[in-house]
Design a binder for these strands. Structure first.
Length: 479
RNA sequence: UCCUCCUUAGCUCAGUUGGUUAGAGCAUCUGACUGUUAAUCAGAGGGUCCAUGGUUCAAGUCCAUGAGGGGGAGCCA
């Protein structure tokens, strides 16, 4: 018979005569006549309390039952005599499956620092914090697919290995099967990629957008959800070298449709997590409050669930880049020269201190910034009639910064071609992209959503390395 | 890559102006305890003070270099 999870068992309405639980020991306590084991199997935040009565089982049966050990226990599920749990298992049989040497097992029933847990990422799943994060992560992945499926989108797998390095989204990781030592050389003494696996230099993808556009111009509404790789030497709490990105792309959508889609989608998936992961969110919320206890009142963040509800229930603020510059210019913050970079002229890129001011001080809610100067944005963004700005939009979230970057794409062949020339994008290599503008082009739009950045926002965690199971970042590819 | 802070027991941290034998809490082990809730109480064990070099009669403490980590910036999602 299939054994039930602890989540299923403790959801029972009544006592159960014979139940079996399987999992890992989180804690054990004992006295002369009775011992208690807190057993967790990952199905829920809650551990089940196993009662070992030495009148029923010998004291020997507790041997090796240390924190971290795995076991199977059988017995009757009874309403608990203790106050902190509804049920407990009165053990009649305990089978130790895998021991864990208490002198060597690094996790203790106490609070560990996130930095320490990062060093033992192979074991950190066994903590409440990381099991909660990873349950939420699964639900968020599921909610995203569900949202797009409900809306009639098709999921597209775009290539992970790509030969084009024209996307300009950042430094790329080279993919090669050539030998490290003495690779074949050309007559000029350079590495001869004609002899490489693909016959040309190839890299890991930095974005599936360009391929998603091809699919959108036939299937209508598509989205990708895949791994993305950036070889940037960035060492921050919101960058990873390997992360997951969601990139919807829709034919006949203009920038407003695009913003509506992004806002609706974000609200849907956040609401999904509020509805399906309440227990884990509450745990993370308490954890955050505990963490911030020592902070001053004005530095404390909004309670996690309140913050998520606020985003779900309020419209995002939509402002153009030009309006944002005016707001920043006229702000007291700018006049008192509190910005490190003073806002003086139109055309400069916004620093993260400016984005934070707009989101956290001025509007106090998510902000969608649109119509950036064309000089600071990518070649494929549609040029506005003023010929100075492009139909770009960035969604900024409090505490995270940019969570979405998107645009209406340039669908006019001639305009696109001349922009590619201006920005030195090799047009021969991009013939397939240009072809969509030559044959049945339509206005279309899309955006990229950083999955782990959304995870940061939803879990309230501070470092992106803690919301992905095995983070990859400069000088680190452990596990 | 830049700025800044940090590295002392398994974990979290203290260590005075450079001065004798290196400190605490938790964890671990042993014992006690009538059902505990990160149980409680008593006792014990546990140290390459990140590494290398230097200054000094004397370095955990000061200086230099390196490594690793945190936070911030840039780049971005």
């Amino acid at each position: 018979m299939k054994a039930k999870t602890i989540k299923e068992i403790i959801a029972s309405e009544t006592e159960i005569e014979q139940a079996t639980v399987r999992g890992w020991v989180r804690n054990r306590r004992g006295s002369k006549n009775v011992a208690f084991i807190a057993l967790n199997d990952g199905s829920t935040l809650e551990s089940i309390q196993i009662v070992v009565d030495f009148a029923v089982l010998s004291e020997e049966s507790m041997k090796g039952i240390n924190v971290g050990a795995s076991l199977i226990a059988k017995g009757a599920l009874k309403f608990s005599q203790g106050g902190k749990q509804r049920f407990e298992l009165m053990a009649t049989e305990i089978q130790l499956i895998g021991s864990a040497d208490p002198e060597k097992y690094p996790l203790q029933p106490k609070k560990h620092s996130l930095e320490f847990l990062r060093e033992i990422a192979h074991l950190r799943f066994r903590t409440n914090t990381f099991s909660a994060i990873n349950r939420i992560r699964h639900n968020l992945i599921f909610a995203i697919h569900q949202y797009f499926n409900n809306q009639g989108f098709y999921n597209i797998h775009t290539p992970i290995i790509t030969a084009s390095d024209a996307e300009g989204a950042g430094e790329m990781f080279r993919v090669t099967t050539l030998p490290d030592i003495n690779p074949p050389l050309t007559e000029e003494g350079k590495v001869n990629y004609r002899e490489d696996f693909f016959g040309r230099p190839t890299n890991l993808t930095v974005s599936g957008q360009l391929e998603a556009e091809l699919a959108a111009l036939a299937l209508g509404k598509v989205y990708t959800f895949g791994p993305t790789f950036r070889a940037e030497n960035s060492n921050t709490t919101r960058h990873l070298a390997e992360f997951w990105m969601i990139e919807p792309e829709v034919a006949f959508y203009d920038l407003n449709d695009n913003m509506d889609l992004a806002e609706d989608m974000l609200k849907y998936v956040i609401k999904y997590i509020l509805d399906h992961c309440r227990e884990d969110l509450e745990f993370l919320s308490n954890r955050q409050q505990e963490e911030e206890k020592t902070k001053k009142a004005e530095e404390k963040s909004l309670e996690l669930i309140e913050k998520l509800l606020f985003v779900v229930n309020n419209d995002f603020e939509r402002v153009t880049y030009t309006q944002a510059i005016e707001i920043l210019k006229n702000s007291n913050h700018n006049k008192k020269k509190k910005f490190e970079y003073i806002i003086d002229e139109w055309g400069a890129d916004l620093q993260s201190e400016h984005e934070r001011y707009l989101v956290e001080k001025h509007f106090k809610k998510p902000v969608i910034l649109t119509d950036y100067p064309k000089g600071i944005k990518a070649f494929y963004m549609r040029v506005n009639e003023d010929d100075k700005t492009v139909r770009a939009m960035d969604i900024l979230f409090p505490g995270i910064g940019e969570i979405v970057g998107g645009s209406q794409r340039e669908e006019r062949y001639e305009v696109l071609l001349s922009k590619m020339k201006d920005m030195h994008i090799p047009e021969e290599e991009m013939f397939w992209y240009l072809d969509t503008r030559r044959f049945g082009t339509v206005p279309h739009s899309g955006f990229g959503l950083g999955f782990e950045r959304l995870m940061l926002f939803i879990t309230g965690m501070g470092n992106i390395r803690d919301v992905i199971p095995f983070p990859r970042f400069p000088k680190s590819a452990e596990f």
